[in-house]
Amino acid sequence: MDKAHVVELDGLEKSFATPKGPVAAVRGIDLTVRAGEIVAMLGPNGAGKSTTIDMLLGLTRPDKGAVRVLGGDPTEATSAGSVGVMLQMGSLLRDVSVRELLTMMASLYPAPLAVDEVLQLVGIEAIAERRTQKLSGGEAQRARFALALVSNPELLVLDEPTVAMDVESRHAFWATMREFAARGTTVLFATHQLEDADSNADRAVLIAEGRIVADGPTNELKTMVGRRTIRATLADVPLAELMLPGVECADRHGDTVILSSSDTDRALRSLLATFPQAHGIELTDAGLEQAFLALTRRNGR
């Protein structure tokens, strides 16, 4: 077992029972996170990110596959106090101030940070004496971030951490995260916003429909998902003949064909050269969800 592998997910699968029968949330995820990495799990809502995080933390048991965190069982790692977590849902304990809550939590860990240091790091000294039930959504979110840091964890896991925050708090949040990570903490966070992953992670893992569809350094992220879509009216041409040079994915709605490509100049030239009758051509940036669908298809589902 390599201790440098902070997280190892191996063939994870999980389905949930619903009134309409079982629904597969995670369909086979393999992921290794090395010490010191900042990894973003990027995917649309419902892609399976939160379920993966729950399994990674030992809150949910996988149907299949194995989880290792810091070289052992995830519950061993959390019991040892080595993992700081900010879950997507969850409110704070009532009837205590932010400082008191941090003191309570710090008392549970073997080697916590000083409460004042955490308050300063997260920039919430001003609300330290306020009762938790009187915090705004964004303030509560930052207090929860402080709770995740107070244990001085080896691994920090954040599930959609900036959801309730305004633009300014988001910037402050990510700046704090990067500052903290610079101490050597490994960070894994889930987000559905490309920008969050792009500017704050070293590596992005793209998840769609319960699978990893791409995994690479964030500077390659734009090319992984930064594809554009060509729409054109073109009747009676089979899809197979549309897989022209430069085209990565082809689809059709009636007489409209939809081609996605990361090199649209080349794709357009070959389209017009082969099918001069194509008309009504539109060029659009593919949204993240569309890009994900394309990636999912390319990976042979």
Binding site: L59, T78, V85, L87, G90, L92, L93
Partner: peptide, 18 residues
């Protein structure tokens, strides 16, 4: 009961508090 619903017990399960 309140701490279960608010998700606080879930948070505590991720700490060394047994």
């Amino acid at each position: 009961a309140f701490e279960r619903v608010s998700g606080w017990t879930r948070q505590l399960r991720l700490t060394p508090l047994r």
